[in-house]
């Protein structure tokens, strides 16, 4: 069964329909891509899933539990974690402390016996921030900031991980390293959902891809299916694909 199940979500802002009847699912051990032009509703969908935005209609299920009416913190405790497209770092704190905050909160509700300090060291190593650990986060580049956010999310030991444009602001080698980490996480059984503008990255790494356009899900399938989908090409290029 899908770890994350989004069913027929509709969101309206005044007269504007940001999401219309969108359904998609994320399976454990897979990277699920979510792409679409700017303003297609990708971040809104993430906000609906994490509970920052109430949908007009539809349900969100995490591991079989209906969480549509739950507060964001409750959803997190069911194993959901996310990063933000506009960085939401804790600017008064260092890199290490940023991740430590999340680790401490997680330890508080999960009642684990893990030593949070050791856990944080491990995560710093994993996302490649060990050398910058004691810098204040405002000194980091955007790409490094994204790693901090990823580290914080991992500190909550999630089952479902939502990543909102994690590779934007990263250079080529950072992206490469990041992709390897993504594969590792999926291999460990996480359900990763990836919103990303770097289409080659998405095509390379994702098992399944969903395409949003103007709030509607216009395609869903394997990378190969998506690449040959006429509607997707139209959404991205603005005109019907010319047939040779």
């Amino acid at each position: 069964m899908a770890l994350l199940d989004i069913q027929e979500i509709t969101v309206r802002f005044g007269g504007h329909t940001a999401l219309s009847n969108v359904s998609l699912a994320a399976e454990p051990g897979e990277i699920t891509g979510l792409i679409g032009p700017n303003g297609a509703g990708k971040t809104t969908l993430f906000n609906v899933v994490s509970g920052l935005q109430q949908p007009g209609e539809g349900q969100v299920l995490i591991d079989g539990t209906d969480v549509t009416r739950l507060r964001p913190s409750r959803r997190a405790r069911l194993g959901l974690a996310r990063t933000f497209q506009r960085l939401e770092m804790f600017t008064m704190l260092s890199v290490r402390e940023n991740i430590r905050v999340a680790a401490d909160i997680h330890k508080g509700w999960a009642r684990t016996k893990v030593d949070p300090a050791a856990q944080v060291d491990q995560i710093l190593e994993r996302v490649g921030l060990s050398e910058l650990a004691d810098l204040r986060v405002t000194k980091l580049s955007t790409g490094q900031g994204r790693l901090v956010e990823l580290g914080r999310a991992l500190a909550c030991e999630p089952k479902v991980l939502l990543l909102d444009e994690p590779a934007s602001g990263q250079d080529e080698s950072e992206t490469e390293r990041f992709a390897a980490l993504l594969r590792e996480l999926a291999a460990e059984g996480l359900a990763v959902v990836l919103v990303e503008h770097d289409v080659p990255l998405v095509m390379r790494e994702c098992h399944r891809i969903n395409v949003l356009d103007f709030g509607k899900l216009i395609a869903s399938g394997t990378p190969d299916e998506i690449q040959s989908n006429a509607e997707v090409l139209e959404a991205y290029l603005g005109s019907p694909a010319a047939t040779p």
Partner: peptide, 10 residues
């Protein structure tokens, strides 16, 4: 700094 981020950690 960010209530939203804190909430997403539970």
């Amino acid at each position: 700094d960010s209530e939203a981020a804190c909430a997403t950690f539970g």
